[in-house]
Design a binder for these strands. Structure first.
Lengths: 192, 192
DNA sequence: CACGTTATGGCACTGTGGGCCACAACGGAA
DNA sequence: TTCCGTTGTGGCCCACAGTGCCATAACGTG
């Protein structure tokens, strides 16, 4: 497993765990990279090799989930109505074990509650929206940058965010359930 | 008009104009506050008194438009269906003179095309969403942090962003028209 | 034991943002 | 005219994110 060269001094997971502990204790803004580095037992410069920015520490392996998300969409039979296919994928995407490390609730509370992270999230979600736009484009025969694919991508994110905000107000609720409820609410809202 | 005390050395508008020129010439990231300050003929420290951050320079008087936005919603008769009331207000909000200074196209192209600004925009749009959520809450008898008000706020922003992205691909189109088209597309998309 | 390979981490630098404070430039009162 | 309160300016200093550069440490292999 180990090739040639000096072995790694740490892992993404170790950094993530330590960072989340410090963020919980001192707050995100009041936790300099310098401190995380010393707690992990590694140089500050090394942290930036594992994560391109302090913000990105909070997303964990989000990017790795995009492949599965795209695969789930691609596997949907084309006779399923488009909106149902997309909605199902979005709901499923938000259904995962809550006992992750760090806990999903803590992660989302941190992101949604920290302005810098909330802002950064748009950049992370852009690829997620692109996956939806690409699927809608294929199903409708349009290009991914046409109006409808883009609209569906943005609206899917909107529903997810509304659900997340509610969920953080009451964690006992089911997150996928809230996404579904948000969609039902939107459909009723827009129904003539 | 001038009270006691030292007169101002510059104005928000003057800073905005100079900054946009430099952003166009050199790009946003390659334009340090130091340079903007010297071009305006003012100290760097003073810039931060006029705008809380470099990002905020690009939004101009956005916050001042929120009052009119809320007023437009409040003035809508309650017998207008809720979704139409909100949609109308959103469409109207995006209907304004294109020959502003700096030009609206340049501003939006800068914001949508610069990752740092795109990220920052969520923070600016939060208040805009809050206006919508408050209105929906009043009309439905819910609280502003309930699921539907939040959902409608997020979705309204989603439609606007999709329209903006399309508009920047083809500026000859009508921006309010694209917002309307995005809504039509969404309703068709969600219709059974 | 030398060699290539790979990761670390120190150093120096740019740029944002903010605290602090001396000081400049006004209008008005003595 | 001079002094005074008021208000904006801008210099100085600092914390911190992020990046390029490079010496060096720690592996596996021949």
């Amino acid at each position: 497993m180990a090739g040639p060269g000096r072995p790694s001094a740490t892992t993404h997971a170790a950094i993530e765990t330590t960072a989340f502990r410090l963020f919980a204790e001192r707050g995100f803004d009041a936790t300099p990279m310098e401190l995380i580095a010393s707690e992990v037992g590694v140089g500050r410069r090394t942290l930036f090799r594992y994560f391109p920015s302090k913000n990105d520490i909070c997303w964990g392996a989000f990017d790795d989930t995009l492949g599965g998300f795209a695969a789930g969409l691609a596997a949907t039979p084309d006779d399923v109505p488009l909106w149902r296919a997309v909605h199902r994928a979005v709901v499923d995407f938000n259904d995962f074990p809550l006992d992750a490390d760090p806990p999903h609730e803590q992660r989302m509370r941190l992101i949604l509650g920290t302005p810098a992270l909330q802002a950064h999230s748009v950049l992370r979600y852009a690829q997620w929206r692109a996956v939806i736009a690409a699927y809608v484009a294929r199903r409708t025969g349009a290009t991914p940058d046409a109006l409808l694919p883009r609209t569906v991508g943005h609206v899917s994110l909107a529903l997810s965010l509304a659900a997340y905000e509610r969920w953080l107000d009451d964690t006992t609720a089911s997150l996928p359930g809230l996404v579904d409820e948000a969609m039902t609410g939107l459909r009723d809202h827009l129904a003539p």
